[in-house]
Simulated scan of single mutants.
Amino acid sequence: MPDVRLPKLNNNDVHYVLVEWAVPDGGLVRAGDPVAVVETSKATEEIVAEHTGVLRHMAREGSECAVGAPIGVVSADGEAPAPEPEAAPAQGREEVLITEPAERLAAELGIPRERLLALGRKVIRRTDVTALAAATDDVGHVDLPRGQPAIARAVAASHADVPAAFVAVRVVVDDAVRRARDAGRAARQLIGLPELTVRALGRLRTPFPVFFGTRLADGTVTARPGAHVGVTVDVGNGLVVPVVRDADRLDLTGIAQRLLAVRLAAMRDGVQERDLAGANIMLALANEPGVVLSRPIVFPGQVCAVALPGTLSEAVPGSEPGSVAFRTVVDIGLAYDHRVVNGRDAVLFLQALKAQLESDDA
């Protein structure tokens, strides 16, 4: 079975960091599909599959991998996938990756490393330590995740100030996913539904200016210039909402580069205050497998928040009588300030977003 190996991307490095898998373990890949993102000393690069089949991971996210080393294996159609090999730990690193915030909290709570390793996870985050502590009788005090107090303040302020309503629409995304994959391959960027949705929101700023405005104390709304989309990012260090500024002017590659940069910064606790300022609409990502609907909060100062949950496989009548076909859908939600937006306009906004994502140039 063919390996997925790390190519030599520049002459200075002998190791790269595996930042993110673009395809889950056991997922189907096609030759030419991006399967992983690695970080060199100079840039981030996508690694593409050279063969079609089922991908099995051989290295974990966050691990340091030698140039030329296999990080995955692709089994051919009809061939039983090989057992997942043991990933050789990088020099000076353990097989299980324990994040620094998780190590600090475990030390504060007196939880030994052996109990963390017994969780059986490849990556152990602060939230895993919190859950372990909560389930342990002899630990009487558990700190909340570091970002939770700030989240609590934002939620309390939202519920106190914004009388929010909610509506959702189902979007068929088979073509959008294909277009995103093709665009990502052409631009050598990781492009998916989040990037497409940010661009689609940018295009809606002109026909729906109120949705990008701010409600003033006198009840009027000021339409703020530009589509500045805050996108939720949580890589285990707490939720942050960095801003993709001027999404109405950026192409897919620019949006993808911006989102990748802030994801990497969030992994290193390196998100700056300037990265978080100026959003006039929010895209809340809840696109983990199994999440079918999400209702975000509306931050004070904004009019609405769009939720992008996970995709679903929906059965529909097939082309032949009595046959069944399947399509990929996602239920995109809109939470909105009912003082500013009425239900009809909220539905029109979502229908326009749906049309953008389902159109040929989404």
Rank of each mutant, 00 (worst) to 15 (best):
L9W: 00
N10M: 06
N12S: 07
V23A: 14
D25Q: 02
G68T: 13
G68H: 11
V73D: 05
V74R: 14
A80V: 13
A87R: 09
A90S: 07
A90W: 04
A90T: 01
R104L: 13
L109W: 11
E114C: 08
L119C: 07
V123W: 04
D143I: 00
Q148M: 08
A152L: 13
A156C: 09
R170N: 03
D174G: 14
D175G: 11
L193F: 12
R199S: 11
D218M: 11
A227M: 03
V235H: 00
N237Y: 13
P242S: 03
L250H: 07
D251F: 13
L252I: 14
G254W: 00
R263S: 12
L264K: 15
G270E: 11
Q272H: 04
D275P: 04
G278V: 11
I281M: 13
M282D: 05
A286R: 12
N287G: 08
Q302N: 03
A305D: 10
L308N: 03
S313F: 06
E314C: 02
A315Y: 04
P317V: 10
V324F: 15
F326M: 11
T328Q: 09
I332P: 00
G333H: 01
L350T: 01
Q351T: 08
A352T: 01
L353V: 09
A355Q: 12
Q356S: 14
L357A: 06
